[in-house]
Design a protein around this nucleic acid. Structure first.
Lengths: 207, 207, 207, 207
DNA sequence: CATGAATGAGACTTCATTCAT
DNA sequence: GATGAATGAAGTCTCATTCAT
């Protein structure tokens, strides 16, 4: 994991995520990051004058595709498919970069620090809202039952995804996160479908 | 929050949870705990010779009712009601002691440390398994659809609950966690019910 | 200069003054202070949680006798004698503790830091004002000419005293500061006397 | 304060003085100087291979007119006027370049460093000696009383001037340093005049 | 039980300086 | 002349922990 093909600044960010993954948020030290990069701490500080800046870069990196994924979702066949796409895209990304799920599990801990609270909340509620909007549109299109509010549906789905990531982490990435999330989500969404007859004919498109 | 009616040792544990709630796991310091208790750091070490011991006490405290709640669930009217009872009991407990939800959000961070990994996993998988067992029995009783495995149902429900806690935290406990979780869970479980006709007649019992 | 008869906290202050005297304000480091005291830096920080606190303690120590000296001056035979007493008392004190003159020469440098600006100005203007008040009273009593304002007289006297200290420092305390200041001040004050005839009969009292 | 009309090397010196004025001697850092000049730290080192060199340049700049002013003084009408001219010339210069008074207040701090001690002492005693020589000649010419030695007179005058600068700095240059120094000095010198009758007829020439 | 004084390790950060380009 | 990337030393400060009293 030298990430040697990248620029130092980006390499430092990735290394930091590795450290978070291994030692947790409280385990990040400029010393450790520097050591893993084979440079001095002072060199790290040339790129990120304060440790806080480094953490912000990590969070920006973490959320860098959020709006893209949100936008792409809308180009799916229908809003049900969009929800599916939205979640499974993250699952696929995380499967290829398991370390980053450490961030997903650290929202609250990060939010304890003034410096990150707003950014974390923005990411969390941003994703929740994106899902909620998709759910709301699916409801308007008569695809999803209205017994649960769109916000509740979003929270159930995102909550499940986070739990799935945590279980996956605890089990050392021993199976395919994407497959697990995709297959669970299909049935879950089917349970929320308005007309149970549609359920039987629906074709879930992998991508 | 002086917790003055308790013994020092227990007070220290509660104070530590307060600190975790405010500053996060990495914010716990013997100094801060001592300061809040109005004693010296050295005094804290009389009760907990190592910081690790204190953290273990916090985790034991956090999970102290787990088996009781699990047991009580089985005394509910049916297994569907048992699942409902299981989750809402935690919601009610947390609503009365919001700080403790900080622990719920720190599983992964805690699990990064060798000292706590096993205990954390035991708590997490313990709760997941308890829920899964209830779900399995509900399926065997024909109350829950078998489209999702019991483990998946458990993960969806626990995931939702954790997400609900996180949102609640971010929104500064502005509403009733218990009510929100209870009402969402009713509809969610209804969606998983085998026979839709039963859904209409089911009476959810608050407690 | 172990100052071993004093309490640690006070010893640290005195050691800090020694360091300022040798290396200048910018040369004070907690490391150096700790080393000279034969303790660890952490121990220094137990007594002074921030370096700034240590510096404040140094300034408080520096100015600790200011109001006493000011008060004692007023008990002299007359206001001319009071001015004389005021300045020579400092000269005597400094002669016995030459290191402390390093502070006198660092007003401006210290005042560059937000943390000390107000305290430094208070000390400087406090002494200037004390002298001015004495001069004003001497003028009212007809002892000093009014050609110069009391403020100007104060600035001339204090300026001379500071310059005398600086010269004395540069010359490695090779002579008696007190004697030099006292004898110069006598003639200087005589020059400001209203009636030149009085000059010849005035008896300056050493103390 | 871009000083853009000057050569880089000189600009760096002036910028350094600005920094000293704002942050004090210990606040000078190659980083800060470079930043203010809009160049990199490395670029500063092209001009001044060591920080010490930069400081020497600052001191040379500070004292650059010393011999000129000393020489010009001798061309005044008489030695009393020469003393007056000597001091007021500095006052005028400083009034037009207030930042430079920061150096005047940092003699002792600078002298703590081996690298500058000799240069600082040379400047300080150079000015003191220049004044003393003028005073001695004024005494020889019967213009100044001999009650104070020439050296004492010099120290009183220079001390007053330094104090005047410090007060002026503390009061944010709110008034004319030159006027204040000039008017005070006139009366002060009058006090030292041999024959009080001359005092009344003396005409002080501003320039 | 509790305190006060101390410690060693390590955290973040700044600084002067170097060097290849 | 200038830059960008790096460095080693030092500085302030925090932390868990110890121990005599």
């Amino acid at each position: 994991m030298g990430y040697s093909f990248l620029h130092r600044k980006e390499r430092i960010v990735l290394t930091t995520i590795d450290v978070i993954n291994e030692y947790g948020i409280k385990g990040i030290s400029t010393r450790e990051v520097a050591k893993r990069q084979g440079i001095t701490e002072a060199a790290v500080f040339k790129h990120f004058p304060k440790k806080v800046d480094l953490l912000h870069a990590v969070l920006d990196f973490y959320a860098q595709y959020d709006s893209d994924i949100s936008a792409s979702s809308l180009q799916q066949k229908d809003y049900l498919q969009a929800i599916f796409y939205y979640v499974v895209t993250y699952a696929e990304y995380y499967e290829n970069y398991p370390q980053i799920t450490a961030i997903t599990q650290s929202y609250d801990v990060l939010a304890c620090e003034d410096d990150f609270r707003e950014k974390i909340k923005k990411i969390y509620f941003g994703r929740l809202t994106a899902l909620r909007d998709l759910a709301a549109k699916a409801q308007q299109a008569g695809l999803l039952s209205c017994e649960l509010s769109a916000a509740q549906i979003a929270e159930i789905i995102l909550g499940f995804f986070h739990a799935a990531c945590l279980t996956w982490r605890f089990q050392k990435y021993a199976y395919s996160l994407k497959n697990y999330v995709a297959s669970t989500l299909q049935v879950l969404l089917n349970s929320f479908i308005t007309d149970r007859r549609e359920e039987r004919v629906r074709k879930w498109q992998e991508f």
